[in-house]
Nucleic acid binder design. Structure first.
Lengths: 113, 113
DNA sequence: CGGATATGCAATGCGCCGGTTGCATTTGGA
DNA sequence: TCCAAATGCAACCGGCGCATTGCATATCCG
Protein backbone atom coordinates (compact mmCIF):
# COMPACT_ATOMS: atom_id res chain seq x y z
CA UNK A 1 0.00 0.00 0.00
CA UNK A 2 1.49 3.31 -1.02
CA UNK A 3 0.55 6.94 -0.79
CA UNK A 4 -1.21 6.70 -4.12
CA UNK A 5 -4.11 4.59 -3.04
CA UNK A 6 -7.04 5.23 -0.75
CA UNK A 7 -7.85 8.32 -2.78
CA UNK A 8 -4.95 10.53 -1.83
CA UNK A 9 -6.05 13.15 -4.32
CA UNK A 10 -9.40 13.44 -2.66
CA UNK A 11 -7.74 13.66 0.71
CA UNK A 12 -5.56 16.60 -0.24
CA UNK A 13 -8.63 18.38 -1.57
CA UNK A 14 -10.83 17.75 1.44
CA UNK A 15 -8.28 18.40 4.17
CA UNK A 16 -8.04 22.19 3.69
CA UNK A 17 -11.82 22.48 3.86
CA UNK A 18 -11.98 20.56 7.13
CA UNK A 19 -9.04 22.57 8.43
CA UNK A 20 -10.90 25.79 7.67
CA UNK A 21 -13.92 24.50 9.57
CA UNK A 22 -11.79 23.26 12.44
CA UNK A 23 -11.63 26.53 14.33
CA UNK A 24 -14.34 27.67 16.71
CA UNK A 25 -14.24 31.27 15.60
CA UNK A 26 -14.48 30.35 11.94
CA UNK A 27 -17.16 27.75 12.49
CA UNK A 28 -19.10 30.36 14.45
CA UNK A 29 -18.80 32.74 11.50
CA UNK A 30 -20.14 30.04 9.21
CA UNK A 31 -22.99 29.46 11.63
CA UNK A 32 -23.79 33.17 11.73
CA UNK A 33 -23.79 33.43 7.95
CA UNK A 34 -25.96 30.36 7.55
CA UNK A 35 -28.62 31.59 9.96
CA UNK A 36 -28.60 35.33 9.31
CA UNK A 37 -27.66 35.44 5.66
CA UNK A 38 -25.04 37.68 4.02
CA UNK A 39 -23.30 40.02 6.45
CA UNK A 40 -20.63 42.69 6.43
CA UNK A 41 -17.36 42.42 8.31
CA UNK A 42 -18.43 44.90 10.98
CA UNK A 43 -21.72 43.13 11.54
CA UNK A 44 -19.88 39.84 11.85
CA UNK A 45 -17.42 41.38 14.27
CA UNK A 46 -20.23 42.57 16.50
CA UNK A 47 -21.22 39.37 18.24
CA UNK A 48 -17.82 37.80 17.81
CA UNK A 49 -15.33 37.51 20.63
CA UNK A 50 -12.40 38.75 18.60
CA UNK A 51 -11.18 41.80 16.74
CA UNK A 52 -12.34 42.92 13.34
CA UNK A 53 -8.89 42.12 11.99
CA UNK A 54 -9.14 38.61 13.32
CA UNK A 55 -12.55 38.23 11.71
CA UNK A 56 -11.14 39.48 8.42
CA UNK A 57 -8.31 36.96 8.54
CA UNK A 58 -10.69 34.14 9.34
CA UNK A 59 -12.92 35.13 6.45
CA UNK A 60 -9.87 35.05 4.21
CA UNK A 61 -9.09 31.53 5.37
CA UNK A 62 -12.66 30.44 4.71
CA UNK A 63 -12.53 32.11 1.31
CA UNK A 64 -9.31 30.33 0.39
CA UNK A 65 -11.00 27.07 1.28
CA UNK A 66 -13.86 28.07 -1.00
CA UNK A 67 -16.39 28.15 1.81
CA UNK A 68 -17.36 31.82 1.56
CA UNK A 69 -17.26 34.60 -1.00
CA UNK A 70 -17.48 38.35 -0.76
CA UNK A 71 -19.09 41.15 -2.74
CA UNK A 72 -18.35 44.83 -2.37
CA UNK A 73 -21.33 47.07 -1.72
CA UNK A 74 -20.30 50.66 -1.35
CA UNK A 75 -17.78 50.94 1.41
CA UNK A 76 -18.55 47.58 2.90
CA UNK A 77 -17.76 43.98 2.02
CA UNK A 78 -20.64 41.55 2.21
CA UNK A 79 -19.78 37.94 2.91
CA UNK A 80 -21.93 34.95 2.16
CA UNK A 81 -21.69 31.19 2.25
CA UNK A 82 -20.58 29.12 -0.70
CA UNK A 83 -22.18 25.75 -0.27
CA UNK A 84 -20.24 23.77 -2.87
CA UNK A 85 -17.18 23.01 -0.79
CA UNK A 86 -19.27 22.27 2.26
CA UNK A 87 -21.32 19.82 0.26
CA UNK A 88 -18.11 18.28 -0.99
CA UNK A 89 -16.93 17.83 2.58
CA UNK A 90 -20.25 16.31 3.55
CA UNK A 91 -20.08 13.91 0.62
CA UNK A 92 -16.54 12.96 1.56
CA UNK A 93 -17.62 11.95 5.05
CA UNK A 94 -20.44 9.96 3.54
CA UNK A 95 -18.03 8.03 1.35
CA UNK A 96 -15.78 7.26 4.29
CA UNK A 97 -18.74 5.93 6.22
CA UNK A 98 -19.83 3.71 3.37
CA UNK A 99 -16.37 2.27 2.79
CA UNK A 100 -16.03 1.59 6.49
CA UNK A 101 -19.32 -0.25 6.55
CA UNK A 102 -18.19 -2.31 3.60
CA UNK A 103 -14.90 -3.08 5.33
CA UNK A 104 -16.79 -4.27 8.38
CA UNK A 105 -18.94 -6.49 6.23
CA UNK A 106 -15.89 -8.08 4.62
CA UNK A 107 -14.37 -8.53 8.04
CA UNK A 108 -17.48 -10.16 9.41
CA UNK A 109 -17.65 -12.54 6.48
CA UNK A 110 -13.98 -13.39 6.88
CA UNK A 111 -14.48 -14.24 10.53
CA UNK A 112 -17.50 -16.39 9.85
CA UNK A 113 -16.02 -18.54 7.15
CA UNK B 1 -26.67 39.01 18.33
CA UNK B 2 -24.40 37.58 20.97
CA UNK B 3 -22.11 34.59 21.29
CA UNK B 4 -24.94 32.56 22.72
CA UNK B 5 -27.00 32.29 19.58
CA UNK B 6 -26.42 30.47 16.31
CA UNK B 7 -25.81 27.26 18.26
CA UNK B 8 -22.51 28.11 19.91
CA UNK B 9 -22.62 24.95 21.90
CA UNK B 10 -22.86 22.89 18.76
CA UNK B 11 -20.01 24.85 17.25
CA UNK B 12 -17.63 24.13 20.09
CA UNK B 13 -18.45 20.45 19.80
CA UNK B 14 -18.05 20.20 16.06
CA UNK B 15 -14.92 22.31 15.67
CA UNK B 16 -12.50 19.80 17.25
CA UNK B 17 -13.79 17.05 14.99
CA UNK B 18 -13.26 19.15 11.88
CA UNK B 19 -9.87 20.21 13.19
CA UNK B 20 -8.89 16.56 13.58
CA UNK B 21 -9.95 15.88 9.99
CA UNK B 22 -8.23 19.00 8.73
CA UNK B 23 -4.80 17.48 8.31
CA UNK B 24 -3.73 15.55 5.24
CA UNK B 25 -1.86 12.89 7.16
CA UNK B 26 -4.75 12.29 9.54
CA UNK B 27 -7.34 12.32 6.78
CA UNK B 28 -5.21 9.81 4.91
CA UNK B 29 -5.16 7.59 7.99
CA UNK B 30 -8.93 7.80 8.17
CA UNK B 31 -9.10 6.89 4.49
CA UNK B 32 -6.81 3.92 5.01
CA UNK B 33 -8.84 2.65 7.94
CA UNK B 34 -12.12 3.08 6.08
CA UNK B 35 -10.97 1.12 3.05
CA UNK B 36 -8.75 -1.52 4.62
CA UNK B 37 -10.41 -2.02 7.97
CA UNK B 38 -8.71 -2.15 11.38
CA UNK B 39 -4.93 -1.78 11.23
CA UNK B 40 -1.97 -1.70 13.56
CA UNK B 41 0.32 1.28 13.97
CA UNK B 42 3.16 -0.33 12.02
CA UNK B 43 0.87 -1.27 9.17
CA UNK B 44 -0.46 2.28 9.10
CA UNK B 45 3.05 3.68 9.16
CA UNK B 46 4.01 1.60 6.13
CA UNK B 47 2.38 3.57 3.33
CA UNK B 48 2.46 6.83 5.23
CA UNK B 49 4.96 9.56 4.50
CA UNK B 50 5.87 10.17 8.12
CA UNK B 51 7.41 8.43 11.11
CA UNK B 52 5.71 5.89 13.30
CA UNK B 53 5.79 8.40 16.13
CA UNK B 54 4.03 10.94 13.99
CA UNK B 55 1.40 8.36 13.07
CA UNK B 56 0.92 7.54 16.74
CA UNK B 57 0.41 11.20 17.62
CA UNK B 58 -2.06 11.66 14.80
CA UNK B 59 -3.99 8.63 15.96
CA UNK B 60 -4.09 10.14 19.44
CA UNK B 61 -5.52 13.33 18.01
CA UNK B 62 -8.15 11.39 16.09
CA UNK B 63 -8.94 9.39 19.22
CA UNK B 64 -9.36 12.54 21.31
CA UNK B 65 -11.81 13.80 18.72
CA UNK B 66 -13.65 10.49 19.04
CA UNK B 67 -13.01 9.50 15.44
CA UNK B 68 -11.02 6.33 16.11
CA UNK B 69 -10.52 3.83 18.88
CA UNK B 70 -7.87 1.25 19.64
CA UNK B 71 -7.74 -2.29 20.97
CA UNK B 72 -4.65 -4.08 22.17
CA UNK B 73 -3.95 -7.42 20.57
CA UNK B 74 -0.80 -8.97 21.93
CA UNK B 75 2.07 -6.62 21.39
CA UNK B 76 0.25 -4.51 18.85
CA UNK B 77 -2.43 -1.85 18.94
CA UNK B 78 -5.23 -2.18 16.43
CA UNK B 79 -6.97 1.00 15.39
CA UNK B 80 -10.38 1.27 13.83
CA UNK B 81 -12.83 3.95 12.84
CA UNK B 82 -15.54 5.23 15.15
CA UNK B 83 -18.30 6.51 12.93
CA UNK B 84 -20.39 8.43 15.47
CA UNK B 85 -18.41 11.66 15.48
CA UNK B 86 -18.01 11.56 11.74
CA UNK B 87 -21.72 11.20 11.33
CA UNK B 88 -22.18 14.10 13.74
CA UNK B 89 -19.90 16.23 11.60
CA UNK B 90 -21.78 15.23 8.49
CA UNK B 91 -25.08 16.12 10.13
CA UNK B 92 -23.68 19.45 11.23
CA UNK B 93 -22.78 20.37 7.66
CA UNK B 94 -26.22 19.32 6.58
CA UNK B 95 -27.83 21.66 9.09
CA UNK B 96 -25.69 24.55 7.98
CA UNK B 97 -26.70 23.93 4.40
CA UNK B 98 -30.39 23.86 5.28
CA UNK B 99 -30.25 27.05 7.33
CA UNK B 100 -28.40 28.77 4.53
CA UNK B 101 -31.02 27.74 2.01
CA UNK B 102 -33.72 29.05 4.33
CA UNK B 103 -31.82 32.32 4.74
CA UNK B 104 -31.66 32.70 0.98
CA UNK B 105 -35.37 32.07 0.70
CA UNK B 106 -36.13 34.77 3.27
CA UNK B 107 -33.81 37.09 1.43
CA UNK B 108 -35.44 36.42 -1.89
CA UNK B 109 -38.88 37.03 -0.43
CA UNK B 110 -37.68 40.24 1.18
CA UNK B 111 -36.36 41.55 -2.12
CA UNK B 112 -39.51 40.68 -4.00
CA UNK B 113 -41.98 42.36 -1.67
C1' DC C 1 16.81 -17.70 27.13
C1' DG C 2 17.54 -14.32 23.54
C1' DG C 3 16.76 -11.89 19.41
C1' DA C 4 13.46 -9.61 16.72
C1' DT C 5 9.12 -7.14 16.42
C1' DA C 6 5.78 -3.60 18.07
C1' DT C 7 5.02 0.00 20.75
C1' DG C 8 5.79 3.73 24.55
C1' DC C 9 8.04 7.85 26.40
C1' DA C 10 10.58 12.17 26.24
C1' DA C 11 13.16 16.05 24.60
C1' DT C 12 13.81 19.09 20.93
C1' DG C 13 13.15 22.11 16.83
C1' DC C 14 10.70 25.15 14.02
C1' DG C 15 7.10 27.09 11.32
C1' DC C 16 2.62 28.66 11.12
C1' DC C 17 -1.73 30.11 13.29
C1' DG C 18 -4.65 33.09 15.80
C1' DG C 19 -4.80 37.37 17.75
C1' DT C 20 -3.62 42.18 18.67
C1' DT C 21 -2.27 47.09 17.82
C1' DG C 22 -1.42 51.13 15.02
C1' DC C 23 -2.11 53.63 11.11
C1' DA C 24 -3.60 54.44 6.22
C1' DT C 25 -7.31 54.47 2.75
C1' DT C 26 -11.85 54.52 0.70
C1' DT C 27 -16.63 55.83 0.75
C1' DG C 28 -21.15 57.76 2.30
C1' DG C 29 -23.66 61.67 3.71
C1' DA C 30 -25.00 66.16 5.96
C1' DT D 1 -16.19 69.98 1.98
C1' DC D 2 -15.50 67.45 6.17
C1' DC D 3 -16.39 63.98 9.42
C1' DA D 4 -17.51 59.41 10.47
C1' DA D 5 -18.02 54.78 9.14
C1' DA D 6 -16.05 50.52 6.95
C1' DT D 7 -12.30 48.42 5.53
C1' DG D 8 -7.21 47.60 4.20
C1' DC D 9 -2.32 46.99 5.32
C1' DA D 10 1.57 45.71 8.10
C1' DA D 11 4.28 44.55 11.97
C1' DC D 12 4.60 41.92 15.93
C1' DC D 13 4.12 38.06 19.30
C1' DG D 14 3.11 33.91 22.12
C1' DG D 15 1.87 29.31 21.65
C1' DC D 16 0.85 25.19 19.72
C1' DG D 17 1.03 21.80 16.01
C1' DC D 18 3.75 18.56 13.22
C1' DA D 19 7.62 16.00 12.89
C1' DT D 20 12.00 14.13 14.23
C1' DT D 21 15.51 11.46 17.01
C1' DG D 22 17.03 8.57 20.75
C1' DC D 23 16.15 5.33 24.02
C1' DA D 24 13.21 2.30 27.01
C1' DT D 25 9.76 -1.33 27.44
C1' DA D 26 6.84 -5.21 26.29
C1' DT D 27 5.80 -9.26 23.71
C1' DC D 28 6.24 -13.09 20.50
C1' DC D 29 8.73 -17.06 18.97
C1' DG D 30 12.51 -20.34 17.78
Amino acid sequence: MSLHSAGWREVSRAAPVFAALGDETRLALVARLSSEGPLSITRLTAGSAVTRQAVTKHLDVLATAGLVSDVRRGRERIWELELEQMEAARTYLEHVSRRWDAALDRLKQFVEE
